[in-house]
Write a protein that binds this DNA or RNA. Structure first.
Length: 577
RNA sequence: GCCCCGGUAGCUCAGCUGGAUAGAGCAACGGACUUCUAAUCCGUAGGUCCCAGGUUCGAAUCCUGGCCGGGGCGCCA
């Protein structure tokens, strides 16, 4: 067994049980899982091994007998206090308090809190947020942005070289309508005030006019062709649309603390499209059908995929293929992750399949999430029930400010505002991140702005309380050298915190591997709950010397974990609330 | 018609790589602030895990078939 320095108890124990099982029962490589998993109920111990039940058939023995023979033959690792056989044949392991204490102490000096740098030397491209130019971001965009960003942060923390790319929708037929619309009825004043909103208004007006006025429609088409052919004037206007849009998107990203490495819109890959078509044709993958060029995916159980329209224009499948090609050549990624809503599943399955047929060598992953809808209906611009992202953030900050004002009336105004920002934005993010991404989500203001119970402010509050305790400790005992007092695990709540802290790496890994930040959110909420109970029921500063310092150290370890975990979700941890 | 998701407490949701008594928050009820921050804690109550079969020592979790709800299915992205 060659274990790295900060291997988790679960890893060490699993390696040991696997090894021991194989030796005791003379097992070769078998399909039976011989490792351990965390128990769901702490009265059963800390980890359990379920192999005895599964081995019953293979070994032709009763499960409990297998468990007993294992237990009799085994020489327990030093970090295990005792082992118990229960129920039909569960083998339960109880970690020793001393080993737990020592483990938590060792984490104090590890900036990665026991998390292995599994991504060293590997690159992953994450494509997320990706709003359309000239359309304001609304609450439908928040999921891709917030979930994508959390995945981004998780992978960076695991040591991956992450390329976060905002694949803007900056190319397409809508720009013809934009051009003619803009020239005819843009309101300069409105444009200066809220650029993207005005651009959207212009687009809608132009679109509506095109439906009744064929001349207008033709005009739009003409301008689109001019743009595509590189007409200087149209190109300049188009660039203006993009600049205005990005500028406004960036104010949202700043508020959300989301940063991209690249802003490469679809237009970036434009010149590569004809070559992509050539490749597809050359490989015999693309064939003509009804004037369009398609890839037949019937044998893959999917409908055909159009790669060139009958008017000669390209679609998104082509762009996406060119994008993959380009990313592979430039970054050589081990994986490319796309974060979009569920409606695009078929599209991704199609172009992933084509990419594979073309021999593109990267692991393509589509992380999709359920659509957001209102209790009474789905969102639609036509219904006018779209909630702008900026408005949502404003509301969250305003509501948080009310709470800050009432709970900290003496705090300077500026500080109150700053605090309200961190809390309000945190609450919004957490709401999205704490749910299974694939669930359908119903938007309610009440839920989005929840600041009690399972919410970001609850976690932030727990963190702030620790900071406060820590400060008071130092004020009261300015000369105390914490490192001279060992961590002592005695109280049940101390033990529960220690166990939970030791499982942070598993939570990080599971969240990253499954592309599900809610696993991290769940973990943190659990930890904060245990801590809150600890805080409320066990004295720290009033405890005797030794116990006092030990508990402060546990607090500090908890704070470090909460802070890092929340950071992985993109949520700030103010020192005071 | 075909494909993908969801259906768990009054409401909003976790849990779904099978494990031993199904969990939170909100709402309800009852307690705890001269104490380390009550955005908190402690407790009570609340469940045909959509239905019916199947696999298994063991199913909310896996399989099949239904029923509801959402989404997608050739020139939008």
């Amino acid at each position: 067994m060659n274990m790295r320095e900060f291997a988790t108890f679960e890893e060490r124990l699993s390696a040991w049980t696997t090894d021991t099982m194989q030796t005791v029962f003379g097992l070769e490589e078998s399909s039976v899982k011989l490792g351990v998993s965390p128990t769901q109920n702490e009265t059963f111990g800390d980890y359990q091994c379920n192999a005895a039940m599964e081995l019953a058939k293979v070994l032709k023995k009763a499960p409990r007998q297998i468990a007993q023979e294992f237990s009799d033959a085994a020489k327990l690792p030093d970090f295990v206090e005792k082992i118990e056989i229960a129920g039909p044949g569960f083998i339960n392991f109880f970690l020793s308090n001393a080993a737990l204490a020592e483990h938590i102490q060792s984490l104090e000096n590890d900036s990665h809190l026991g998390v292995e740098q599994a991504g060293q030397g590997k690159t992953v491209v994450i494509d997320y947020s990706s709003p359309n130019v000239a359309k304001p971001m609304h609450i439908g965009h928040i999921r891709s942005t917030v979930i994508g960003n959390a995945i981004d942060r998780l992978y960076r923390f695991l040591g991956y070289n992450v390329v976060a790319d905002n694949h803007l929708g900056d190319w397409g037929t809508q720009f013809g309508l934009m051009m003619v619309g803009f020239r005819s009825f843009v309101d300069e004043e409105a444009l200066a005030e809220a650029p993207v909103e005005e651009l959207e208004r212009v687009y809608i007006a132009s679109y509506n006019k095109s439906k009744e006025d064929p001349t207008w429609r033709d005009e739009a088409k003409k301008e689109l062709v001019k743009l595509q052919q590189g007409d200087a004037e149209n190109l300049a206007l188009w660039k203006q649309f993009i600049e205005l849009s990005i500028k406004e998107f960036d104010t949202i990203y700043d508020r959300l603390d989301v940063k991209f490495d690249l802003y490469r819109g679809e237009s970036f890959y434009n010149e590569q499209l004809p070559k992509m078509i050539e490749t597809l044709e050359g490989r015999g993958l693309a064939v003509e059908s009804d004037g369009a060029l398609i890839v037949d995916l019937e044998e893959d159980g999917m409908p055909v995929c159009i790669v060139r329209k009958s008017d000669g224009g390209y679609n998104y499948a082509t762009t996406d293929l060119a994008t993959v090609q380009s990313r592979i050549e430039e970054f050589d990624p081990e994986r490319i992750i796309y974060v979009t809503d569920e409606r695009q599943q078929l599209h991704f399955r199609q172009f992933f399949t084509i990419a594979k047929k073309l021999g593109m060598d990267a692991n393509l992953v589509h992380v999709w999430f359920g659509l957001m809808r209102l209790p009474e209906a789905t969102f639609s611009t036509r219904e006018g029930n779209v909630i702008k992202l900026a408005a949502l953030l404003d509301e969250a900050e305003a509501r948080a400010l009310e709470m800050v004002k009432s709970s900290s009336p003496d705090m300077p105004k500026e500080q109150q505002k700053e605090l309200a920002r961190a809390i309000g934005i945190g609450a919004i993010k957490y709401t999205d991140l704490s749910q299974n991404p694939q669930s359908l989500v119903t938007f309610t203001w009440e839920k989005a702005l929840n600041m009690e119970g399972n919410s970001a402010p609850y976690l932030q509050y727990a963190y702030a309380r620790i900071s406060s305790v820590y400060d008071k400790f130092h004020a009261k005992y300015p000369d105390a050298e914490l490192s001279q007092y060992p961590i002592i695990i005695e109280h049940e709540l101390e033990r529960r915190i220690a166990i939970k802290l030791s499982r942070f790496p598993a939570a990080v890994r599971a969240a990253a591997e499954n592309y599900r930040p809610n696993i991290m959110a769940d973990y943190l909420y659990d930890l904060a709950q245990i801590y809150s109970s600890f805080y409320q029921n066990v004295p720290f500063l009033k405890a005797d010397e030794g116990i006092r310092e030990s508990r402060i150290r546990l607090c500090r370890a908890t704070a470090a974990t909460l802070r890092k975990g929340l950071d992985l979700l993109g949520i700030e941890t103010p020192e005071r609330i």
